[in-house]
């Protein structure tokens, strides 16, 4: 936060009186310059955050409600026992695990390939980056068409002899469930978590991986520029293969960036909203319902009674979960790398 950058400078000990004056003036001017941002942040971010925290302990269902009472932790209890919320957290969990893993691996691979001295690599870099600068709503709309039962993806599947009748945006079966059914095991009675993400949710994940790989690829490309060539030269003289160089030099030196990408991706995936909102509105059977989509729906959504206080409680539970996961990641990934946050 830029707030922390506004540390007032304490003058060096023994500075002259006019020097202190000067210092104070500069401090005041500094704060003045920052004030537009500080004020807007205080009102629209910190203020609203405190307000949301406050209403999460009341029964205020919408801010236009005439009166409200304090209900203590009731909303938190309700949220933690809410079946939809459970489902949305499980969906978000799969999304986080699968998307973060594949997009980090994909971004590293793509960055290494595009860092190699190949022809027209600037062109490739630009082309690959295009999905990242496109609005996710636009991308979602495009994929909605690609995923139609009569759409391009099914057409491509039929060309290479794969089953092509999938109704991608309306397939609630879990992918683990589908896999074990190939071995004749009926998993329809399994708990929701064990069935795995639904086919629809997996399709949305695939889309998201496709569009976010280039964003993180750029970070890895930048990091790759910082790895000194001498290391590779020395390794080459020692007889290391390209594969060994990648595992022994590139990957360890990319570690700080990997940590950064994983943490950013974790926060992003656990808060995913737009793709699900545009493509499925959470369906089929809530298998693409995400926590943020649920929170939005509970506050302002269509055809649902507003329950802002419950939504606020859900939002703080989600924030706590993200916080804990990020802490764990820092603890295990960040060892021996420089501090980024």
């Amino acid at each position: 936060m830029a707030v922390q950058a506004a540390q007032p400078g304490g003058g060096p000990p023994g500075a002259s009186q006019s020097g202190k004056m000067m210092q104070r003036r500069e401090t005041i001017a500094g704060y003045l310059f920052l004030s537009p941002y500080l004020i807007t942040t205080a009102i629209f971010f910190v203020g609203l955050l405190l307000y949301a925290f406050f209403i999460s302990f009341t029964n205020l269902r919408a801010t236009f409600q005439a009166s409200y009472e304090f209900v203590g932790l009731q909303n938190y209890v309700e949220a933690l026992t809410d079946r939809e919320f459970h489902k949305s957290l499980i969906n978000a969990f799969w999304y986080f695990i699968i998307v973060t893993t594949l997009q980090t691996a994909g971004a590293i691979a793509l960055a290494v390939i595009l860092n190699a001295p190949i022809k027209a690599r600037r062109l490739y870099r630009t082309l690959f980056y295009a999905p990242s600068v496109t609005s996710s709503v636009v991308i979602s709309m495009i994929f909605l068409w690609l995923y139609l039962r009569t759409g391009f993806i099914n057409y491509a599947f039929s060309m290479i002899g794969l089953p092509s009748g999938t109704n991608w945006m309306a397939s609630p079966n879990g992918i683990f469930q589908n896999v074990v059914s190939l071995f004749g095991i009926d998993a329809s009675g399994w708990p929701y978590f064990l069935k795995g993400p639904s086919v629809t949710w997996t399709a949305i994940m695939a889309m998201n991986i496709f569009t976010t790989i280039p964003t993180f690829m750029v970070m890895f490309l930048a990091a790759l520029q910082n790895i000194p060539d001498q290391l590779y030269e020395a390794a080459g003289i020692d007889g290391a293969s390209a594969w060994q160089q990648f595992w022994q030099i590139t990957l360890p030196l990319l570690r700080p960036t990997i940590v950064l990408v994983i943490v950013l991706s974790t926060i992003g995936t656990l808060q995913v909203f737009d793709q699900a909102f545009v493509m499925t509105k959470g369906g089929p059977l809530d298998t693409s319902l995400t926590p943020v989509l649920l929170i939005y729906t509970k506050t302002l959504g269509e055809d649902t009674p507003a329950n802002a206080s419950l939504a606020a409680a859900m939002a703080f539970i989600l924030a706590a979960i993200i916080f804990i996961i990020t802490l764990i990641q820092r603890r295990y990934l960040e060892r021996g790398t420089e501090q980024y946050f």
Binding site: S171, P172, S188, D303, T304
Partner: peptide
């Protein structure tokens, strides 16, 4: 007064029948 919730619950039931769940 509970229309939205009742419809949602019934729709979930019907959808799960039609989708073979």
């Amino acid at each position: 007064e509970h229309k939205d919730d009742v419809i949602k619950s019934l729709n979930t039931a019907m959808e799960s029948i039609w989708l073979g769940q």
